[in-house]
Simulated scan of single mutants.
Amino acid sequence: MTETVSFGYEQVSPEEKTARVGGVFSNVARKYDIMNDAMSGGMHRLWKDKFVRRVKPQAGEDILDMAGGTGDIAFRMEKSGAQVTVSDINEDMLEVGMGRALKRGIDTLIWSPQNAETLTFPDKHFDAYTIAFGIRNVTDIPTALKEAHRVLRFGGRFFCLEFSTVEWPGLAQAYDVYSERLVPKLGKAIAGDEDSYRYLVESIRRFPDMQNFKRMIGEAGFVQTKVEPIMGGLVAIHSGWKV
């Protein structure tokens, strides 16, 4: 890795980024889902529904939902009968997810604290790997992508849902104003944490654009890589296959 990496608009050591990102998500864990609704006007639910439709989980499959935190993607996938392992580096997020699963009467999920860069799962263990709104917070993204490739079986598929670069001119300017000025204020009002949500906005700005991230997925060993923009690139679904 390079000597420094981005933490929002700052350059910090890799170790400091990992620790500070952990602090951000520990701070926001309890209000994370409420804030998702507030920031997206509930649109994140539709994006996640579409994402899971693209993944096409099947009964009998083993699926790793990385950065799965509060369980939103896993709850949607477990209905298929797939065996879903929910992993996150942040145990506070996993605790929220396990509590939500208990309230829903869902007891089929496996919850496993994991660092996306150093997964403890064996090679060729999963049929699919999903990560939604988590890859941009990983300290070493290329290493995490290689780990995703390693733990997938041949024929396995990788799917990533992430904020990206808006390409619609009018929406791009409006979104810039909204995210820079209003999202941190929402964070302060709802979650009592303006700084964490300022970082989350900055992390979106620093994330590679759609084509560059697609290239990174290919460099990790995936083939037939694709990107599907949603709302002009406000968010995007990236995918690839291990063959």
Rank of each mutant, 00 (worst) to 15 (best):
L182S: 07
L102D: 13
G170I: 12
M35Y: 03
E219S: 14
W111C: 06
L186R: 02
L64N: 02
D33K: 04
R205P: 07
E228D: 11
G68V: 09
N115V: 00
D65F: 01
Y197R: 02
T4P: 05
V138Y: 00
Y32I: 04
A67Q: 04
T120V: 06
N36I: 03
V201K: 01
F133I: 04
M98G: 09
F121A: 01
G41P: 12
S179H: 08
H238N: 07
M93R: 10
R53Q: 15
A116S: 15
R54V: 13
V177D: 10
R54A: 14
A101H: 06
G192H: 08
T143A: 00
G23E: 15
N36E: 04
K17N: 11
A19Q: 15
I237Y: 09
P113M: 05
I73H: 08
R198M: 06
A220V: 00
G60F: 08
N90D: 12
I230F: 12
I141W: 01
Q114A: 00
I34E: 11
V86G: 02
G99Q: 02
L182D: 06
G42K: 03
H149S: 09
L161D: 03
K188H: 09
V55G: 01
F75I: 08
S164F: 09
A172Q: 13
G68M: 04
L171E: 05
Q83H: 14
D123F: 00
G8I: 03
G240E: 14
G105P: 02
P113A: 10
R100F: 01
F133K: 11
A59I: 06
E228I: 13
V21C: 10
F154E: 15
D107E: 09
F207G: 14
G81A: 06
E202K: 14
E61D: 10
D65G: 04
P142H: 09
V243P: 15
D123V: 00
G60C: 03
E147R: 04
W47F: 12
V24E: 06
G8Y: 11
S164Q: 12
S13A: 14
K214H: 10
Q173C: 09
D107A: 05
Y199L: 03
M39S: 07
D72I: 03
A38C: 02
T70I: 06
A144S: 12
L161G: 07
D65C: 03
K188M: 04
S13R: 10
E162S: 07
T2V: 11
G134E: 11
W168P: 01
D123E: 14
R215P: 08
I217A: 13
L102M: 07
E180H: 14
V12R: 03
S6G: 04
M210Q: 15
F7P: 09
Q58H: 09
D123N: 12
V227F: 14
F133V: 08
R198K: 12
